[in-house]
Amino acid sequence: MDVFMKGLSKAKEGVVAAAEKTKQGVAEAAGKTKEGVLYVGSKTKEGVVHGVATVAEKTKEQVTNVGGAVVTGVTAVAQKTVEGAGSIAAATGFVKKDQLGKNEEGAPQEGILEDMPVDPDNEAYEMPSEEGYQDYEPEA
């Protein structure tokens, strides 16, 4: 019985440690998101679009440190934060509304985080759909 109880105690310690790591990862992701939003706020009209992409990228980098179902929630929060940063930029006159959601080359930025393969159960990952990809044929 002692062996059984000791095993359960060790398992509990492992769960607590994993929860603490997840909590730490979420806190880091939130900190990076805040950094990115402050970065966007300090940019001029020309830099705002690039700044919004930076927020998304920093958040995406930190999301990889967070495991399990938390990833889905962090990704949703990050996307809403990026959308909010863009709205703030438009409201303050840093950028025109028609410039939001495009990178410096004018290509749409939507789907940055949505296409990231995420499995809350950590069982399997699927690649994003290939609808947006084109076949590449090298020139002879």
Rank of each mutant, 00 (worst) to 15 (best):
M1T: 00
M1A: 00
V3D: 01
K6E: 02
K6Q: 02
K6N: 07
L8C: 01
L8E: 00
S9L: 11
S9A: 03
A17H: 06
A19F: 15
E20F: 11
K21C: 03
K23C: 12
V26F: 15
V26P: 00
A27K: 07
E28C: 06
E28R: 08
A29H: 02
A30Y: 14
A30L: 11
G31W: 12
T33A: 06
T33I: 03
E35G: 04
V37T: 01
T44M: 15
T44E: 00
T44K: 01
T44G: 04
V48T: 02
V48I: 12
V49Q: 10
V52L: 12
V52E: 00
T54P: 01
V55D: 00
V55R: 01
T59V: 10
K60A: 13
Q62K: 08
V63F: 11
V63T: 02
N65I: 14
V66S: 01
G67P: 02
G67V: 10
G68K: 11
G68Q: 03
V70A: 03
V71C: 04
V71N: 02
V74F: 08
A76L: 10
A78L: 14
A78E: 01
Q79P: 02
T81L: 09
E83R: 07
A85C: 11
S87H: 12
I88D: 05
A89V: 13
A91S: 05
A91W: 11
T92K: 03
G93P: 05
V95G: 04
V95W: 14
K97A: 09
K97V: 15
D98G: 12
Q99C: 10
L100D: 11
K102L: 13
K102G: 06
N103M: 12
E104A: 09
E105H: 01
G106C: 09
Q109P: 09
E110F: 13
L113C: 03
L113I: 14
E114C: 15
D115I: 05
P117M: 08
P117A: 05
V118S: 07
V118L: 09
D119R: 01
D119V: 05
D119I: 10
S129T: 10
S129F: 13
S129A: 07
E130I: 05
E130D: 12
E131L: 07
E131N: 09
Y133S: 03
Y133P: 09
Q134S: 07
Q134I: 09
D135T: 07
D135R: 06
Y136T: 08
Y136N: 04
E137T: 04
A140Q: 07
A140N: 11
